[in-house]
Amino acid sequence: MDERIEKLTLMASQLRRDVVNAVYYAKDGHPGPCMSAADLMAVLYFDLLRLNPEDPSWIDRDRFILSKGHACPLWYAALARRGYFPPVELKTLRVLGSRLQGHPDLKKTPGVDANSGSLGHGLSQACGLAIAARKRGSDSLNVVITGDGELNEGIVWEAAMAIAHLKLTNVIAIVDNNGMQSGGKVEKVSGLYPLREKWEAFGWYVVEEDGHDIGRLLPVLERAFQRGRATREERQGMSLLPDHLRRGRASAGVPHPDQPVVLIAHTLKGKGVPYMEGDNSWHKRVPTDEEHQLALSILGGQDLE
C-alpha cells in the first residue's frame, strides 16, 4: 500500500505540473479547479480505473466523466501520462486544430468518454452508461468527478434521483468539494449546504474524505470500486471503510446493497501551488513566466516531451 501511495503522490504532482505547463503554453485555461482534483485523478487513472490505452474504445473499460469539464487540462494530463497520447501534445491545448479542445470532446480526444464543459451533466450520462453496462452484463464502472459549484444545476439532482431509484450501484460519484465556484465561495453564491444531507435525502450513501490524502482516498475508493463490480449478494454487509477505521463496528461504512455511493472529497482550490491555493482568481488565469517557473520548481517531475 505504501508504495502505491508514494507512486500516486508523485503522479499527482506530475499532473499538476502538466496542468501548469499546458495552461502556460496555451495562455488560457482553468488551473485552480484542476489542482483540487489532481490527487483524485491520480488515484483513479493510475490505480483503480480499468482501462486500455491501446484500445480506447474497448467496450468493457470503466467509463470516467470529468463533469467539471473546465478542469480538462488535468484530464488531458492524466490521459497523456496514461499513454493515450504523447504528453508534448498538452502544449496544443485550445489551439486551432488540436485534439485538446477548450472543453472535453469525446470525438476528438482519445480516452475522453463523454463530453462535458456545460456544467452538471456528468451524472446523467453516467446513468445512461450504467444502464447500458448492466444490460450487457458488464461489470464496468461509471465514475464521475463533479465540482461542488456545479451541484447548483437542477439536472444533477434529476440524475441523482434517477441513479438511486434505478439502483445503479455501478455509478460512483465523487464531489471535488473545493468550496469555490467562479463567483466566489460556494456558500455565498448558492444554498448548496448541507451537502451530505442532500445526497442522503436523494438515496445515496455518503463517504467524506480529505481529497488530498491519498493514503485515505485510495482504500476507500478501492472498496467502492470492488463494491461497484460486486453482485448484489456480495454487496450485502460490504463496508467502504478499512478495518482500522471501522473501530469494531460491523455496520460502519456499510451502504444498503442497492445504494449508489458518493465520495465528498474535501479539497482546496489551487492545491499544490502555494500562490494558487485558496485564491479564486486562479479559477481561470495564466501564470506569468516567473509564476510558471516557481510552480515547476515546487512541483518537480518531468516536462512535456
Binding site: S124, Q125, A126, I131, A132, A162
Partner: peptide
Amino acid sequence: PDRVVELGIAEQNAAGVSAGLALGGLIP
C-alpha cells in the same frame, strides 16, 4: 419491460441519460 427507461418528469436528465445509453452502444 427491460427496454424502457422511465426517468420521471425530468427531460434534461432524460436527454443526458439518452446520451449515456448511446455511448454505451444502445439506440435510445
